[in-house]
């Protein structure tokens, strides 16, 4: 999967630009480029549902970030905090070393262990009546998971309305 590696390196470069650039507008646009690269990654990994959802959600997040925040204050603050920089640098280095040795314990890439998923793929059409196995898992086998996700989303919408409450009702 050489094309996939190139895409992930592209995402890493875009996110480094987004973190380190001075102008906040170009930072937000770079994070949009990272999300669209992730959408193409999902398409290469044979997940068209995820590609559609990621594309649509990324556009909405981009609009909200640009209109909501960058219009107010466009500068970045350059003075660094040295203690968090050193601590997080040491932690990230240790973490990456541990990951490099522990990653061999995982099953090899593109040869996963599919114990439950074989049952879902074989019996999913007969038991649920839909041809799309992802939707069958999402809306029939694991509906409580979807229910929890919708509940969290609804709670966050109510939270936003509560935080913005005083001015929202007044003209």
């Amino acid at each position: 999967m050489f094309d996939l590696q190139i895409l992930i390196v592209f995402m890493i470069i875009c996110s480094v630009v987004a973190v380190e650039t001075k102008d906040l507008l170009s930072a937000v646009i770079s994070i949009g480029a990272t999300g669209l690269g992730l959408s193409v990654c999902f398409l290469l990994l044979q997940a068209p549902d995820l590609a559609i959802v990621q594309l649509v959600v990324e556009i909405l997040v981009l609009v909200i970030l640009i209109r909501g925040t960058v219009n107010r204050d466009g500068i970045d603050y350059r003075r660094r905090l040295w203690l968090p920089l050193i601590v997080s640098g040491v932690f990230i280095a240790l973490f990456l070393v541990c990951v490099y040795y522990l990653i061999n314990e995982l099953p090899r890439f593109s040869y996963p262990i599919m114990k439950i998923s074989k049952t879902y793929i074989a019996d999913g059409f007969k038991q649920t009546g839909t041809a799309n196995t992802v939707v069958a898992i999402l809306l029939n086998y694991r509906l409580f998971d979807t229910f929890a996700g919708v509940t969290v989303f609804f709670a966050s919408v109510i939270g936003v309305l509560t935080v913005m409450r005083k001015i929202g009702s007044k003209k």
Partner: peptide, 30 residues
């Protein structure tokens, strides 16, 4: 076929990430 179970989990996780982003933006504007 590819494994459908992680895709169904990630689909919920993307929407929850959207919820996290909008509530963080609202708190920062406030």
């Amino acid at each position: 076929m590819v494994d459908p179970l992680p895709q169904a989990l990630v689909l919920t996780a993307i929407v929850i990430g959207l919820a996290i982003t909008i509530i963080l933006v609202s708190i920062s504007i406030r």
